[in-house]
Nucleic acid binder design. Structure first.
Lengths: 105, 105
DNA sequence: CCGCTTGTTCGACGTTCATGGAAATACATG
DNA sequence: CATGTATTTCCATGAACGTCGAACAAGCGG
């Protein structure tokens, strides 16, 4: 995970609409959520807007889709989030253990 | 930490320039870094651009500044990052323990 | 085949962002 | 007070974003 990639994912998550989408997906668990259901849940009025956000999330690898007949099931990609949180934690140690990390890490 | 606040911080971090700035600050430890040094380190040519990004980071509470005579020392606010990582981890459990979280959490 | 549902793509609108140059501010020093 | 350094604020410009409506594609059921 390099800085550019992390920034891209952070940016994807850095919009209330997309963060809500992602959160709903995460909470839906492995089963995932059809786009229609997702729209209903996050309260985005226009389907095209949701589709746009979803596309962005997918591009960064945070979300995946699987077709089931006419409906598209969306799922959060947990390993991606894991990596991202790992990157953040690695850079920042979250506490005060940061002093020893140095520069080459 | 609500969704809006988290999204704001995520967005602040979601730019290669700002993520690099933040990273440099984190690695500098609690000693912090003067703006000038920061500029030199992250390779932003215009001081005004750096100042702009810094301002954004400060607005979201991710970075703090302290004046020392003519120079401004910038520091990463570790608790803020801790909260953000916590929010992400809380929503996503990072692994596969997510199924039990439910909806009301 | 036709209509219905599901979801995406396209084109457009106004808003916000990133960037940098110039002027302004804050502070130390002589 | 004048000068010099450090940093921000102001302003302008082009690019990207968020949002939406309308048109389109795909698959199911009569």
């Amino acid at each position: 995970m390099n800085v550019e990639q992390a920034a891209k994912q952070l940016e994807a998550l850095g919009s209330p609409a997309r963060l809500r989408i992602y959160r709903a997906l995460v909470r839906a668990g492995h089963a995932g959520l059809p786009v229609r259901r997702l729209q209903d849940r996050v309260g985005i009025p226009a389907a095209s807007t949701l589709s746009h956000h979803l596309h962005r999330l997918i591009l960064t690898g945070l979300v995946s889709q699987e077709r089931q007949a006419t409906t598209l099931i969306c799922r959060a990609v947990y390993p991606a989030m894991d990596d991202l949180v790992g990157f953040l934690a690695d850079e920042c140690c979250a506490d005060e253990t940061c002093s020893g990390t140095g520069e080459a890490a």
